[in-house]
C-alpha cells in the first residue's frame, strides 16, 4: 500500500516515513504543497497524510484544492492544532481523520489502514482469499490456519495483487506500489518476491500473464 506523506519538517518527515515503512507501507514523502498536489494527482496513492503547517501553500488550501478537483482518496491531517474548531474546519474541508502531534506511529498506521479500509468500503481489516486470511493490522498471513511468515515487501506485494483480483498488474505497477521515490529497484526484484510468495503460499495463487505481468485468480 502506497501513501503520500506531506510534511515540511525534515526530521519529523523522515521519522514518520521510516515508521510507516516499518509498518509495511510504501511512503512517498514531499515537503511542500505544490509538489504534494502534483504527486497526489499523478500517482495512485491509497491515502494522503497531510501536515497543515506547510510553507507556501498551507495544508488546508491543498486539502480544499484536492477535494475540489474530485480527489477521492482518504486524506488524514497531521497537525499540532488540536482545538475542536481546527478539527471541525479540517473535517469539513474534506479530511477523513485527524492525527495530533506528537503521535504514536502504531496509531498513525492504524488510522491510515482504517481510512483506506473505509475508503474501500470494507468494515474489517481482514482480507480473505480462498484459504488465505490476511490480517492487515497485525500483518499476519494464515493459510488453512497456519501462519505463513512473509517479509515486508512480500506482504505489500501480496496486498497489491489481492486488491484487484483478476486484474493484471504490470511489473511497473507493482514496483510503484512497493517502492517509494528514489528507491533503487533491482530489475528482477518483483520476480524474486513473486517466486518467494509462490513458494510460501502455493504455486496456483499468482498467475503469470505472459509479457504483461501478474494476476491473482478471481474466486467465484
Amino acid at each position: 500500500m502506497r501513501i503520500l506523506l506531506v510534511e515540511d519538517d525534515p526530521l519529523l518527515g523522515k521519522g514518520t516515513r521510516l515508521g510507516l515503512e516499518q509498518d509495511g507501507l510504501t511512503v512517498d514523502w514531499v515537503q511542500d504543497g505544490q509538489t504534494a498536489e502534483t504527486a497526489a494527482l499523478t500517482h495512485d496513492y491509497a491515502a494522503v497524510l497531510l501536515d497543515l503547517g506547510l510553507p507556501g501553500q498551507d495544508g488546508m488550501t491543498l486539502l480544499r484544492s484536492l477535494r475540489r478537483r474530485g480527489y477521492a482518496q482518504p486524506i488524514l491531517i497531521i497537525t499540532a492544532r488540536h482545538e475542536v474548531f481546527d478539527r471541525v474546519a479540517g473535517l469539513d474541508a474534506g479530511a477523513d481523520d485527524f492525527v495530533i502531534k506528537p503521535f504514536d506511529l502504531e496509531e498513525l498506521g492504524a488510522r491510515v489502514r482504517a481510512a483506506v479500509r473505509r475508503g474501500a468500503g470494507r468494515a474489517s481489516d481482514e482480507i480473505v482469499h480462498g484459504d488465505i486470511v490476511i490480517d492487515r493490522s497485525r500483518r499476519v498471513v494464515r493459510q488453512r490456519g497456519r501462519v505463513v511468515s512473509l517479509t515486508t515487501r512480500e506482504f505489500a506485494l501480496l496486498l497489491a495483487l489481492l486488491a484487484r483480483p483478476g486484474q493484471v498488474l504490470t511489473r511497473a505497477n507493482l514496483e510503484e506500489a512497493l517502492y517509494g521515490w528514489g528507491s533503487e529497484v533491482e530489475s528482477n526484484a518483483i520476480e524474486v518476491h513473486i517466486h518467494h510468495l509462490r513458494r510460501k503460499l502455493g504455486r496456483d495463487l499468482i498467475r503469470t500473464v505472459h509479457r504483461l505481468g501478474y494476476c491473482v485468480r478471481e474466486l467465484e
Binding site: G15, K101, D104, L105
Partner: peptide, 12 residues
C-alpha cells in the same frame, strides 16, 4: 513538531 519527530524516531 520536534517532539513528534523525537517520538517517531524513538519508536523507529
Amino acid at each position: 513538531t520536534p517532539l513528534a519527530a523525537v517520538r517517531a524516531h524513538v519508536q523507529v
